[in-house]
């Protein structure tokens, strides 16, 4: 802060000579030193947070340079991943990442938004709403590796007969054009949907709650039914925030690793079939990093960079939409 002070001749240091036995004391020099040091450390903490983001981008970016120089854009369009032949194409992994995330988003988004409506629009007495809210929070608390294990032993055996029937009857539809022989895109996407549901439900709830009460009352005042008020007033008013929740959910799905590494099948192929095994960028990294030689490290860093760029863009878009929505509601 700057003070423009029209000063008289007052250069005397600020120490009082009025009242010698006053209790008031200026802070001791050690107090002031502690204050200055502590504030410096707090500022340092902020710099660490900023430096971490920069370091994250730089470490991965710089270490990806050898891979980028060697394989360039070919890696993004290549479809073969064969360490033995030193062929590294990640197009199937990019495809699998996007495809599995979109399916997860469709399912998780539908359930998540329904849950948000269910919890915010007076369907439940407070006590019961708390129970459902806890269920959603518990869903978020379970580690992804446990979901992976559950997916292997519960989801895959459960949906397999179903997928066989679909394949037999509707095999001509590209989505059902193969059978589920264990891991595959659909079980991975289903588990992924469960994992992103809490995010979507929580952020959508915030969006729906921030709709002003008078908007809701206006809708009822016009004689709208409960559902007309929800679908024609509440949801459209909160639409930006709800959309933001979907984008954040998508961001989470794109980066999720364990459930996919355990359930998606890790097969480098591009297929529309929901029952075919596939691969994702995160799963590719998880499986290949532990055994990577120097050359592969450059390639994997390149793949990590691609994943980072995709998720960062999606996340920043989502955060901005939510910020925009909050500002809109306030204004």
């Amino acid at each position: 802060m700057t003070y423009k002070i029209k000063r008289d001749a007052m250069e005397k240091p600020f120490a009082l000579d009025v009242d010698t036995d006053s209790i008031c004391q200026p802070p001791s020099s050690s107090t002031l030193l502690i204050d200055r040091t502590f504030r410096m450390f707090a500022r340092l903490g902020v710099f660490v947070v900023l430096a971490l983001v920069v370091a994250l981008v730089l470490e991965i970016g710089v270490k990806a340079i050898p891979g980028i120089q060697k394989y360039g854009l070919d890696m993004l369009t290549g479809t073969v991943w064969d360490v033995g032949q030193q062929q590294f194409g990640i197009l199937p992994a990019i495809w699998g990442t996007l495809y599995s995330s979109l399916i997860a988003l469709l399912i998780g988004g539908f359930f998540g938004i329904s849950m948000a409506i269910f919890l915010t629009q007076d369907f439940l007495p407070a006590r019961l709403a708390a129970v459902f809210r806890t269920i959603v929070e518990l869903l978020a608390a379970i580690p992804s590796v446990v979901y992976g294990l559950w997916g292997i032993f519960v989801v895959i055996p459960f949906i397999r007969p179903l997928t066989d029937v679909l394949n037999e009857s509707f095999g001509w539809i590209p989505f059902f054009s193969s059978t589920l022989s264990g891991p595959g895109l659909l079980p991975a996407a289903l588990v992924l949907a469960i994992m992103i549901l809490p995010t979507i439900a929580a952020v959508s709830q915030d969006a729906l709650r921030s709709v002003p009460l008078k908007t809701k009352q206006a809708a009822y005042g016009m004689g709208a039914t409960h559902w007309e008020a929800i679908l024609k007033v509440m949801v459209p008013t909160a639409a930006t925030g709800i959309f933001g929740s979907l984008v954040l959910g998508l961001g989470r799905a794109l980066g999720e690793t364990m459930a996919l590494a355990m359930l998606v099948g890790n097969s480098n192929q591009i297929s529309l079939s929901l029952f075919a095994p596939a691969n994702t960028l995160a799963a590719l990294l998880a499986l290949n990093f532990p055994e990577a030689g120097p050359n592969e490290i450059g390639v994997l860093m390149y793949a990590a960079l691609v994943l980072m760029v995709i998720t960062l863009m999606v996340n920043i878009l989502g955060s901005m939409m939510i910020m925009y929505a909050q500002r809109g509601v306030k204004a």
Partner: peptide, 11 residues
């Protein structure tokens, strides 16, 4: 007390 509260070096 005759001293500048916002003076230079005043905490």
């Amino acid at each position: 007390l005759g001293q500048d509260v916002y003076g230079k070096g005043v905490d």
